[in-house]
Design a protein around this nucleic acid. Structure first.
Lengths: 256, 256
DNA sequence: CGTCATGTTGAACCGGCTCAATTGTCGTGG
DNA sequence: CCACGACAATTGAGCCGGTTCAACATGACG
């Protein structure tokens, strides 16, 4: 049931107690009111980004994780020859920046899709705390492992699904994430362009347009540029159930 | 320079001191002779698999990591409707099973490609040790993060590269890994079928054949079913430098 | 109210797939 | 040791999903 970035880091604790988004913000955690008060995680800096500005770039030193407070971002990968590909979209409550743990520098570039605010959480402090508190360690591991799961699911999309399936998978993912932030799962606005979506899905922007048009023609979706509405979300989910992602599915499968 | 699975978990320490592969086996670590003797990681079980047998399956409870001692394996992902895709190949010295941390059960199925031996390392013990020893914690994090990096690179392959580029990328990856195990980087045997390769690359087996044929015709490669030889590895690397993976590249790129 | 980026739509093309036939390889049992 | 069967690899022919290129519409914003 957990959303990727929104996996609740209930045990971390921060100085965010007064943050208006604390109920959505993983480090604060809606339910994490334990010992944190006495040992708050220092938030080194908050960032306010305009659309198109970057939070960090590939190659930048890795120093902290970033929690999305408001707005949205995309992260993208770059090939040696400059080709790029969007590897994820990040919404309020998501945590960004875990790439970079491996080599102490970021592998991805993260760009704001609109006006966006984030808090930076110092990674060194986080590690230190994880050393003392097993629950923090566990949460950190979960976060990293979940990141890998998400990447694997994305990989599966790119390798095994048709264009409409990929788009459906993304839309259902966004729907689920909207729901987990307390919004309507059947109606939401997207901030990314068709090109971003195409890049994320391994398709051309034109194909994304056409597929959206097809869904519209099939009366599965109402599409108004950046506004999406599912006519019948349950039916849509049923039709594209095979595309459902990396969340609960794995638990359902019986051992051997 | 590090190889994925072969990232040296130098600080873990195990009961593998007598293992003939200890120099290649991450948990033992060629250089890790510190306190381990007094506090060996218990190896719960070793596995001996025949070709086609599975080490674990999607949905199995996650209890331990597995170090490959000899042989080779593939891991594969499964979509809800049964479609599968190979997500990785594992060679001696690699560590398998880190998927599963997120949900306490495995997301992938790992299958032997030939007669294969592995040791299982209890994850709970590993965590406990990481709690005490920061270096172990760091290694664990690196391992997980590296797994995510690898997945992202794979994703980039599937989303942005042409068929020949994908194949070249895989071959160069195998070459590098062969080298890191002390074998020739320009000549090696592969144990996976064309279908496995195709699945891993998001291509049909036929296309893999044809691309291999093309490389052969271009005198870049000598191919004898499961035996691969680079005619001029350096030239090949140069031609396909853009495909080079998730290893050192990121360090080379200058900040912004 | 003009400008520029984004979105949409059409037409032609093409890379990789599918299907099918053939050959090669290897393990097994006679 | 050889013949057989099963599976893997190869090769050819035709097709198709998605791309590319190009023209046009829309819409946000100074």
């Amino acid at each position: 049931m957990l959303n990727l970035g929104a996996a609740p880091l209930t045990s971390l604790g921060t100085a965010c107690c007064s943050c208006p988004l604390r109920t959505a913000c993983p480090p604060c955690g809606a339910t994490g009111k334990q010992a944190q008060q006495h040992d708050p995680l220092q938030v080194f800096s908050r960032h306010r980004l305009l659309a198109g500005e970057t939070l960090f770039r590939k190659g930048d030193a890795f120093e902290s994780l970033h929690a999305v407070r408001s707005g949205s971002l995309k992260s993208s990968l770059t090939l040696a020859d400059g080709r790029t590909q969007v590897s994820g979209f990040h919404l309020p409550g998501d945590l960004v920046g875990l790439d970079g743990v491996a080599d102490d520098c970021h592998q991805t570039t993260v760009t704001a899709l609109e006006d966006t605010q984030t808090c930076a959480l110092d990674y060194r402090q986080l590690l230190e705390r994880a050393q003392r508190l097993p629950s923090v360690q566990r949460d950190l591991h979960q976060l990293m492992s979940r990141e890998a799961s998400r990447a694997q699911w994305h990989m599966l999309m790119l390798g095994s699904m048709s264009a409409p399936e990929r788009l459906a998978a993304l839309l259902l993912d966004l729907s689920r994430r909207a729901a987990s932030r307390g919004h309507s799962p059947s109606e939401f606005n997207i901030r990314m362009t068709r090109s971003d979506i195409g890049s994320y899905l391994g398709l051309s922007a034109e194909t994304v347009c056409r597929m959206l048009g097809d869904f519209k023609a099939l009366k599965l979706l109402e599409v108004e540029t950046r506004h999406i509405r599912f006519v019948d979300l349950a039916a849509f989910q049923r039709t594209y159930s095979a595309t459902v992602g990396w969340t609960a599915a794995a638990r359902v499968v019986a051992p051997h």
